[in-house]
């Protein structure tokens, strides 16, 4: 299955080719994340006319522009709010939100927790590169402790968010995390997220090579993407327990895979049923 679709999947069919090459920096992880997303869409056989991509502001937000589908590039932090309205009005569309760590956790933080709470059938892809890349490299809610950014010249001293745990606590019914290094695995995760009926929150560990990598001497693009490997702890290795075992050797290993799944009532359906009942009563 995997191999067949790797052969027949041609990403160019899903791109607005006239806009290429894209504006992302050399080695930016977002490109790989977008490939995984489009691959998942292709595998699921979703028609481009039935696919809506809503993106916010930031490097991640620009990705919407490159996909040949119904795309919406909206105000900073509001893609989830926009997507909520879209999905309620057009439940037949597959709605994917592409957002970044700053977009969804800082400016759009409230929209995120309420989207999780409502559990509307949307897939939210949060590309986490730990920095505000497009605006010049400011500290973001997920910047690792002690790392340098333009607004933390002495190193970051704010603890970082664990976005997946936040989403799970807020009620997202499908939560997962994967790194851009593992494109096929990431594709499978996104696919599962799209198939899931309810709100899926997927954190994609991505790299900002030009600003974050350079400021913190994390190496060139290949070194950065390869270093993801040593930080990952797939859920199948025993999850949290193995993280603890690793502690002395690997600081802050992040768990990957499907981290939470709880079947809850989907909001759109509930909403429609409720309204229909009320209208009938009148």
């Amino acid at each position: 299955m995997n191999e067949i679709s790797a052969d027949s999947f041609d990403i160019n069919e899903y791109l607005r080719l006239e806009l290429f090459p894209h504006f992302l920096c050399p080695g930016c992880g977002h490109g790989m994340a977008m490939r995984a997303m489009l691959w998942a869409v292709a595998e699921l056989g979703i028609d481009k006319d039935n696919l809506a991509i809503v993106s916010g502001i930031g490097c991640s937000g620009r990705m919407g522009a490159y996909v040949d589908a119904n795309t919406f590039h909206v105000t900073h932090g509001r893609p989830l709010a926009f997507a909520t309205g879209l999905k309620l009005a057009r439940p037949d569309l597959t709605v994917i939100v592409i957002t970044g760590d700053g977009d969804s956790l800082a400016i759009g933080g409230n929209h995120l927790i309420h989207a999780c709470r409502r559990n509307l059938d949307i897939t939210c892809l949060m590309l986490n590169n730990e920095i505000y890349g497009m605006t010049g490299g400011q500290v973001s809610p997920t910047t690792t402790l002690t790392r340098f950014t333009t607004t933390t010249p002495y190193g970051n001293y704010e603890p970082a968010f664990d976005a997946c745990r936040l989403a799970e606590a807020a009620g997202a019914s499908f939560v997962g995390r994967e790194a851009t290094l593992q494109v096929p695995t990431l594709k499978n995760l996104i696919r599962e997220g799209i198939e899931h009926k309810g709100f899926s929150f997927l954190e994609v560990i991505s790299d900002c090579t030009e600003i974050y990598g350079r400021k913190n001497a994390l190496g060139n693009s290949p070194e950065m993407v390869l270093s993801q490997k040593s930080k990952m702890r797939p859920e199948s290795y025993g999850g949290l327990m193995s993280n603890k075992v690793d502690q002395p050797f690997r600081p802050n290993p992040f768990q990957t895979g499907v981290l939470a799944r709880n079947e809850r009532q989907e909001y759109g359906e509930l909403c429609r049923r409720h309204i229909a009942a009320k209208q009938q009563a009148e």
Partner: peptide, 29 residues
């Protein structure tokens, strides 16, 4: 396909074709 998957700019495309077929049709993938 590692290069194709990891190229952030979609610059690489890998084509695989079975040898027996290419001789017959001469068509590319």
């Amino acid at each position: 396909r590692i290069c194709e998957w990891l190229c952030p700019d979609y610059a690489i495309k890998l084509h695989k074709r079975p040898n027996s077929q290419t001789e017959g049709t001469g068509a590319g993938v």
